[in-house]
């Protein structure tokens, strides 16, 4: 069981796996707020689904939660840690799967991609081989391990991207339209990985425009409307 003090550089007993506290973001002064004092707290061992129409701000919310971009107001926290003040620890705890098919090195093989990612994710050396093999097995990548990414299908690339997301054993996983290009088997593999994370009391934030057809029991359903989350 994961507990906040175990992970926090600044221990906070009241901390949650992920908390978005009054987060606001506006892309330009002449445009309305994309996120308007948005509040969201993930509890350990839960999957939260956030939906909403295209361009409503789901990806912006995830990017702020991941520490990729900064909000204009409010803050994101993981176990009470700040994405900039505690950057390294924060990034060890959170893993983000962006939408689309980017973020891969086209000329590297699957295995080398995973090895590279494990290294810059600063996976402990004693776990390095074990976690890479685990990712290869869990996401059924053994037959593709020596294939270059630019010779793979979109669905295979998506499986690799998901494998990279779960490889460093994060505690909070942020998924942006994770089912893109995945076939049924790929969806099942993702579902298995999410279940594994929940067993470790991790938390998942899953964003997609509409409800997913997967047999996943989302613990919370929210819609993003006018910059705020509305219970569905």
């Amino acid at each position: 069981m994961l507990t906040a003090p175990e992970h926090a550089q600044e221990p906070s007993l009241n901390a949650a796996p992920l908390r978005l506290d009054r987060v606001s973001k506006r892309w330009r002064k002449d445009l309305p707020l994309v996120l308007d004092e948005l509040e969201l707290t993930l509890a350990p061992g839960t999957v939260t689904w956030v939906g909403g129409r295209n361009g409503i701000g789901k990806t912006t919310m995830l990017r702020i939660a991941a520490g990729l971009i900064e909000p204009d107001g409010g803050r994101a926290e993981v176990w009470g840690l700040h994405p900039n003040k505690h950057r390294v620890r924060y990034q060890q705890l959170v893993s983000f799967l962006p939408a689309g098919d980017r973020g891969l090195y086209a000329r590297l093989t699957v295995r080398r991609q995973l090895e590279f990612w494990a290294r810059i994710a600063m996976v402990p050396r004693e776990r390095f081989r074990e976690w890479i093999e685990e990712a290869i097995v869990r996401f059924d990548l053994a037959d593709l391990a020596n294939r270059r990414v630019d010779r793979m299908s979109m669905g295979q690339r998506q499986r690799l991207r998901i494998a990279m997301t779960f490889l460093p054993h994060p505690e909070v996983v942020l998924l942006d339209e994770p089912l893109t290009s995945l076939d049924t088997e790929g969806g099942d593999l993702l579902q298995g990985a999410v279940s594994g994370l929940l067993e470790r009391d991790g938390a998942v934030l899953w964003c997609s425009p509409s409800g997913e057809s997967l047999d996943i029991n989302f613990d919370f359903h929210w819609m993003l409307e006018q910059g705020r989350l509305v219970a569905q």
Binding site: A66, V88, R102, G103, Y105, I120, A121
Partner: peptide, 14 residues
Amino acid sequence: IAGTFDRLLLSPFG
């Protein structure tokens, strides 16, 4: 362009 800079930025290595 490849979107890998995001990954580097979001890695503990930085």
